[in-house]
Design a binder for these strands. Structure first.
Lengths: 136, 136
DNA sequence: CTCTTATTGATAATTATTATTAATAGATAT
DNA sequence: ATATCTATTAATAATAATTATCAATAAGAG
C-alpha cells in the first residue's frame, strides 16, 4: 500500500532502492527485498509498470498510455503523453501471430539540458546526481 | 569483427554470453569480458542495437527500423518489421524538448505457441530452454 | 626492428535482484 | 478472547550479469 501510494505520488521513475529509501521513513522495519517483492507483484497485477532502463528496473504507477524518453548523456527519464503513439503501434501489430497486452515505447536521445551543453561546445557535464545511471 | 559477423548472421537476439559461446569456437582464446566490451562499443558506434529484456542485455545487428515482441510466458523475442510504427513515433515526438536519436518499441504479450496452450486450458509449459529468461 | 599505443585475457569486484527461511502478523474459527 | 491456520515480512545469504583492473600481447608508426 505505502509502496503503491508513494509511486503514485511521484512522477520520477524510481528504482526499487529509491522506493525503499522513501518508504522506510514510514515503515522503518521494511527491507529492500520486501520492496522488490511488492513491486514485482504490483507489476504482475498490472497496477504499475516495470521498465528496464540503463541496466536497472524502474517503476511507474502511471498506467495511462504514455511513452518515455531516456537521455543518453545524463540518464534522465522524461514522460511523453501521446497515447496515439501506443495506439498506433498496437493497431499495426494486430496482424502478427502474437497477442500483445501492451507496448513500451522508449526514445533514446538527448534532453534539452544536454543539448544546450553540446551547442556551447562543452563536454558533457559530470553527473553529480547519478541516480539513473548504472555504475558498478 | 567476428562478433559483428556472428550477430549479423543470426536473427535471434543473443545475450553477450550466447555470442561468446559461438565466437569462442572461432577464437578459442576470447573471453567473455572482451565480448561485452566489443558489444558495448559496437552499440555505442551505432553498429548494433542493445536491448534490455527480462533483466538482461540482448544484442541485435539488424539496424533497420523494426520492433520486438516479448512473450511474457516463454520469454521468446520476435521481430516485427513495420517501420511505420517507429516512424510514426518519431514524427509525433518532435515537439518536445528532447532530441531523439531512435526509438525502441517493445510489445509484451503472448506468442502463438503460448496462446495455443492457454486455449487448451493447460498451465504454462515448463520452459526447458530457459535462455531468455533471467534466473538468479 | 624498436617504440608507442591500443586491445585482450585473466580475473577480481561490484551490485542489482532473487531465494531462503524462521518469525511475525492477519484472518478465521472455536 | 484464544487457539489455529495462512500469508507476508525481515534478515540474510546466494546468484549471476556486467564492469573494472591490469599485466601481457598485438598492432601500427617511424
Amino acid at each position: 500500500m505505502k509502496i503503491l501510494e508513494h509511486l503514485k505520488s511521484v512522477k520520477t521513475h524510481p528504482t526499487a532502492e529509491m522506493v525503499y529509501n522513501v518508504v522506510k521513513k514510514d515503515i522503518p522495519s521494511i527491507t529492500l527485498a520486501t520492496v522488490y517483492r511488492n513491486l514485482n507483484c504490483l507489476s504482475e497485477d498490472g497496477k504499475i509498470v516495470k521498465l528496464e532502463i540503463n541496466g536497472e528496473f524502474r517503476f511507474d504507477a502511471d498506467m495511462g498510455k504514455h511513452q518515455h524518453c531516456v537521455c543518453k548523456k545524463c540518464g534522465k527519464i522524461l514522460d511523453v503523453f501521446q497515447k496515439e503513439i501506443s495506439e498506433y503501434a498496437l493497431k499495426k501489430i494486430k496482424s502478427t501471430d502474437f497477442v500483445p497486452s501492451g507496448v513500451q515505447v522508449i526514445f533514446y536521445g538527448n534532453c534539452k539540458h544536454e543539448n544546450k551543453r553540446a551547442k556551447n561546445n562543452k563536454r558533457p557535464e559530470i553527473v553529480k546526481d547519478n541516480s539513473g545511471v548504472k555504475k558498478r
